[in-house]
Design a protein around this nucleic acid. Sequence first.
DNA 1: CAACTCATCTTGTATATACAAGAAAATTAT
DNA 2: ATAATTTTCTTGTATATACAAGATGAGTTG
Lengths: 235, 235
Amino acid sequence: MSVPKFAQIKEFILENIQSGEWQENDRVPSENELTSQFQVSRMTARRALSELTDAGILTRSQGQGTFVASFKSQSSLLEIKNIADEVKARNSNYSCTILVMESISAIAPIAIALGVEVDSHVYRSVIVHNENEQPLQVEERFVNPALAKDYLQQDFHSLTPHEYLSQNAPLTEARHTVEAIMPNQEMCEWLNLYNEEPCLQVIRRTWSSQGIVSFARLVSPGSKYRLGGHLTFKK
Amino acid sequence: MSVPKFAQIKEFILENIQSGEWQENDRVPSENELTSQFQVSRMTARRALSELTDAGILTRSQGQGTFVASFKSQSSLLEIKNIADEVKARNSNYSCTILVMESISAIAPIAIALGVEVDSHVYRSVIVHNENEQPLQVEERFVNPALAKDYLQQDFHSLTPHEYLSQNAPLTEARHTVEAIMPNQEMCEWLNLYNEEPCLQVIRRTWSSQGIVSFARLVSPGSKYRLGGHLTFKK
DNA sequence: CAACTCATCTTGTATATACAAGAAAATTAT
DNA sequence: ATAATTTTCTTGTATATACAAGATGAGTTG
């Protein structure tokens, strides 16, 4: 047996999720439905669903069924995701200022990071995220236009770029680096920094099944922002 | 049935690991052994082992058996762990300089972070980790003496503090914060920084089942060190 | 109409069984 | 003694079966 049956069923489910066919909170086939679709025993179908549930990709509820998990519950480092939620969770006022929305010609490093040809057009946005009207983070983002045609037409006051992108091209992979930098003058203005101070910079590249979606640079003043991580061994 | 059998077996295994009874890479009972010990079917014993394996706590190998996983393979952010390995993986020369090894009286913030009484004695060490004889990271660590009596007698040239501690009091939980700071003068000297530059500071607190083990502060120059993270959705 | 009961669909737990395949030790043959 | 074979122990895959328990809607009863 080259590839086990339970693994085939897992792949089938993952493909449907990654293609966007099954969205967040959608119901996936029940154990009995998979049993007849794939001509396997219930225990085999169950194994596929259980393992994807343990991996955080599905959620199950006795009596109701099995559903595609929401991406929020994904993983530790990706908590660096939605700064709007983070601010609201602190009972602070969230707002954002959109500084740049444009289509530019990709110079070499950006083209390479996005996996497109040099001098081809890519989208660029610069957004300042505020907590109680004070700048907290600058988000500079370069987007592969092939995977998000309407990017420049979005209103990012109501929906963050990350939310928009993950709805249009379900992401399958993300890579981060975190470093400490000294902001340049432009960045100081954006962040309203009168005295120079070190900043935390997160670079994030995200992939979908069709390729690299976007490349973001998130810069926050060291005095106002820190990253948290938490690990438990047990359970 | 209040608590399922497979869950009881999982607890049994976890307790043995957390107590230090079963160390890294030790063998755990086979499916058949658990079957007779707990009077369950092989499938139930198997479920306990499989789920702990999926959780990264055990590793299994067909024909050989099931073993306690090494903590290296634990999780994404904990990769911030062993800087010695990181340097060696880059084919660079690793060395370290031990600056301080002492027993001090805990001032309030340190006592609170360690969960001990103010003015009680705690251990403190300061170590500089070098890559090719250049300072890469300063590790300042405060240790709860109740959980690591021989801490000051160790030779940390051969064994890192983290390795020593996790052998003596198996860790069950870790919490990190990452931030960007400007180093003070003492830190600049330790890191050999002539010009001020922003640094990445990681604060890590680690727990064992008996309480807070230690509290570490890891500082690296922004120009020489960055943190990496990687997330995959698939599989 | 409202409340209750019941049938049905869902996931959850547990067992007994069968065969496959990798690894290592014991046995046998050279 | 060494090499090849066999046995045994391990995990891996797959099925059929049984009963428990949560959720939901249909039908019955008051």
